[in-house]
Design a binder for these strands. Sequence first.
DNA 1: ATTCAAAATGTAAAAACTTACAGGATTCCC
DNA 2: GGGAATCCTGTAAGTTTTTACATTTTGAAT
Lengths: 342, 342
Amino acid sequence: MAGIEDVAKLAGVSTATVSRALSGKNSVSAKAKAKVEAAARELNYTASASAYTLATGRSRNIGVVMPFVDRWFFSVILEGIETELIEHGYDLTLYNLSGGADQRRKIFFEFLNRKRVDAFITVAVKPSEDELQQLAIAGIPILGLGGPISGARTVSVDEIGAGRLATEHLISLGHTKIGNISGTPASEMEFHQPNLRRQGYLDALKASGLTAHDSWLAEADFTIAGAYHATKQLLGDPRNAPSALFIASDEMAFGAIMAAKDLGLRVPQDVSIIGMDDHDMSEFFGLSTISQNVRQQGSNAAKTVIDLVENLKDGQPVNVEQNREWPGTLIVRSSTARPPRS
Amino acid sequence: MAGIEDVAKLAGVSTATVSRALSGKNSVSAKAKAKVEAAARELNYTASASAYTLATGRSRNIGVVMPFVDRWFFSVILEGIETELIEHGYDLTLYNLSGGADQRRKIFFEFLNRKRVDAFITVAVKPSEDELQQLAIAGIPILGLGGPISGARTVSVDEIGAGRLATEHLISLGHTKIGNISGTPASEMEFHQPNLRRQGYLDALKASGLTAHDSWLAEADFTIAGAYHATKQLLGDPRNAPSALFIASDEMAFGAIMAAKDLGLRVPQDVSIIGMDDHDMSEFFGLSTISQNVRQQGSNAAKTVIDLVENLKDGQPVNVEQNREWPGTLIVRSSTARPPRS
DNA sequence: ATTCAAAATGTAAAAACTTACAGGATTCCC
DNA sequence: GGGAATCCTGTAAGTTTTTACATTTTGAAT
């Protein structure tokens, strides 16, 4: 493995000049730069990351913390972040919390201290007071996705607004008996997104003078199966069934569609269903939904965090507390229509 | 941020002793060890990763390269790897190739050289000659998942055997008209797993003296939608339709089940369907399948790669060329049954 | 009490970069 | 052509840790 010294020797300059030529930040004569670049190419040289980090205190590496990576939302956002980071010459190191409390402690109190990352992006993770303090001591800026974190920048989706949007779509079609399935508290993210979505649903009903019958509401596991069973209950009694359902996630909505079919109900003729997320498979199911533009949320977060670490002032990020909210956009497919005349 | 010197001062010993006490590898008196540990805890000290790497040449960091992260198989395997790595004190840095050839070149010819990782795990990626050479020069060991890579250790699933297993299950139920849907070449992984699965299917038929009618074979996009349309074709003509289908992936099999239902066919009474992977949702669909134990494949790969980097001899891994193959296991659910009497 | 081996500790070099500082070379302008 | 300003380059210090080597301490055996 060639080091900077080898390049310097081959190019006939000092290591300082090599460093300057390759980083492109300081003044180097065109001639020297050419020689250095040729030598570096010949020796296949790239500066060692650890020496760079040690010397500069910067690692060009971003840590990403998420509770799972094997769920659709998280894997898509991860891909969005990663692609953007690579583009800018950053590495991504992944920390997933699915290993439980012990793993979480290890991540926040050991790995974090190794000064291996310039900043963290947390996705749907709410750091505890202890954890935030730990981050502050280590001087690592943090960007939160999917919920407010005090003292940190934050990028999130307007969950309430999105829930309202979905519900308003159903109301505008003429539905008055609108049900809702949200996640159970246990299966929820740490910021209770599904709860917020229901809040938007309730807001929309209220604004239109409608009320939510208790028997039109359900909570279910955040999965296809969970929503399948919940839907069978909600739609089971034809005399008292809602004519439309707003479901807290697309994945759950798939289960709802299958349940409706298995009950002999046609979607959308007998019952309208709208989800939320714009999952990859939603188009296949013809599911109307609210798009969150997840991949772009990821790349946006990556851009923001790079901005954060490249514009530190005295080691502190400038412009803290700037929260950006994304609106959702309504996507109408074939799972929603006017209510049946009864 | 406290450095090793601060800890040494507080504990009243030299930095060498601190290093030894904390790494636990060399002899330190019990008394000194206790003092150092107390001091480290008080100062909240963890050795800086970059200095450690610079001094030792080891980074305790594993690079993972995969073509996507937002597909079920990849995200699950990633989670398996990550959880195991954390357990052993390793970090994971993620490189995904979905950004195209340019990103790929950047990863293999720039990022890789930074000496930031001790080893690579590649998942369903077939490095080119150039890329392999690059890895060799950099002295980075590599563990391949999902296909053979010359000169590297490899962990893979016996795809042919798995395809045979699935087909034999259908044969043992009494089916003689067995169709198969595999991925299109374009949508395939770089090692052509789906092709291998079809190979196993053909082997099994042959062994039982059965033949595959051309009109029972199809290739489709590796998605629900792809298989949905292919299935509609295969089962569209009742007089010439197979009574059972072996589908190259569970995700595709979901599409097949829906297509069958939409054609008015009952699964399994009218048509049996078996997939492959044991996807999270397969239980919900009642899909019979071949389990690949994906998460465990991931954690197994992580263990193997740690073994690889911790047992280097003269910078070279020992035991190269050791290929481990996983068998699949048959999981029978409710999507397969005896063929209908016709 | 001596002696010797083994165990514990300290000193200082090494790992591979960046960058402040200072000095030499150019360029510019009059 | 001379002096100042600017640009370029090299020297050496600094970043934080590990570890070879040297030295001191400990403990056991005589």
